[in-house]
Amino acid sequence: MLQYVIRRILIVIPLLLALSVLLFLYVHAVPGDPIAGMLGPNGSPELIAQIRADRGLDRPLLEQYADWLAGLFRGDLGVSLLTGQKITPVVIARIPATVQLTLMSLFFTILIGLPAGFVAGRHRGTWIDKVLSPAALLGLSMPVFWIGTLLILVLAVNLHWLPTGGYIPFTQNPARSLQLTFMPAFALGIHLSPFLARMVRATTIELQQEQFVIQASMKGLLPRTITYRYLLRNAIVPVLVILGLQLGTLLGGQVIIEQLFNWPGIGRLLVEGAIQRDYLVVQSLILVIAAVYVIVNLGVEVLHAWLDPRVRL
């Protein structure tokens, strides 16, 4: 097991380093001058030169990269191109909102996707499967902002049950905070669950053809026992892996949902950075998001290997 973990980590470290090089080069790939591009017509040559010197962009590339990388190890993401302020504190301030939304979204994804996929797979070919499978395809075809817009129109505009958006920290008012998380998280849950459901369905169908399940039913075990003890338990392992991989989709979807619901998270910060053409902020946030995605999947792989020893081979 330890050997497996070390092997995985040895793959992830160069991957993260390569990502840092790629994103470092990103800023230098701006056609023309990034600062002139950001300032637009207001940028006088003196101002541009001053900002460039101030942000350290006039130094040799290798030196800039070494500095940036050293900063990353200390948790320092560098400074904003636009304001010159440190990026790390701004990002940290946004983390609670984003993490809260991510966790709630995963909760809804599992709540919808796991039972739907399992039931469809267990009763394959019956009416319930024939309803759920096209529903999943419809869900896959709906843009996440569209799901969010529909929720706003129904729950906020028509029924006045929930406000259209906004965020209150959980520590400040837990009940109100969860209430505000409901719509954005539910929209993401609807967005992600069809894919999970499809995978769970396929797994469940496959499990039912496995020897140990056939034998269990030949032994005369109750269908209920087979469902819970044999099928559900084994169908849950893949759920973990799929959720890890879906985190990429979730993080992308969150960028959009945070915008729609005025949710002050990392995604909104990224969009603000992109619109203001603050390339250093965009660079740092893409790196943070990709690193989280890679590291979470490393964790998922390790957990999966622990649950299912065959994976380690």
């Binding site: 992109a274 965009v282 660079q283 990709a290």
Partner: peptide, 24 residues
């Protein structure tokens, strides 16, 4: 294969957003 792995480590929409920010 390594390059593909690196590129796929960045969530698609986030990646696209970064490039659009670059190009306007």
């Amino acid at each position: 294969t390594r390059i593909v792995d690196i590129m796929l480590a960045i969530p698609g929409l986030v990646f696209a957003l970064g490039i659009v920010a670059l190009l306007g």
